[in-house]
Write a protein that binds this DNA or RNA. Sequence first.
DNA 1: CGGAATCCTAATGGATACTG
DNA 2: CAGTATCCATTAGGATTCCG
Lengths: 113, 113
Amino acid sequence: MSNDCKVETALDILVGKWKPVILYHILSNGILRFSELQRLIPDITKKMLTSQLRELEYHDIINRKIYAQIPPKVEYSMTEYGKGLMPLLESMHNWGLAHIEHLNEIYGEEEAK
Amino acid sequence: MSNDCKVETALDILVGKWKPVILYHILSNGILRFSELQRLIPDITKKMLTSQLRELEYHDIINRKIYAQIPPKVEYSMTEYGKGLMPLLESMHNWGLAHIEHLNEIYGEEEAK
DNA sequence: CGGAATCCTAATGGATACTG
DNA sequence: CAGTATCCATTAGGATTCCG
């Protein structure tokens, strides 16, 4: 059996068209409002931004701080626990970087995939 | 810009409902025939097994060796390059394991997600 | 401002049957 | 045995509108 393989658990947290980008911006900026994330990721819709943030929040990767005021203000930041993801993200980034090189060697520069 | 973030590149290789399981079995067994993989992963269809194997092959993670005989025989194994994925897979596995613990602490044992 | 609700499209995954 | 080919179901993602 392979039920002791938890690679997929880690994948779950990162999979989603926008999650890596969102994490990238929050990690770079520390704290970001909903509208700031929208500005930083122009092509994302509110619905997508909301759903991806909620999933990350569910997994305790990011924090959601609501200010009870009008107009509303909501801030997102990494949780302490979520910061523990950073080494893994870096490993993935580095491997990804090397892999692009590798694909170029095999298939040439054209193929982006 | 966040275009220098290549986390997604790494994700691409692993995303796909069956890829982690397939890699797990090939890594555990060294060399496996198509039919052996089918036995080890009972719920997968031929179509899915084929497509996932082809994607891994495209990325030079696994090798496909065809024996020109009747009945056909095809063996799959990790490439040398593909073995370089192992540390990353282990990191992800370990993080995933710890994350399940963490979720249990937050939400209790019931929630599997 | 930061969403929720609704509807729609595209991509992924699966069942089944056929083939060299 | 190791696949294709077709067709169908499910899911992810997106556009738009509305709301406190």
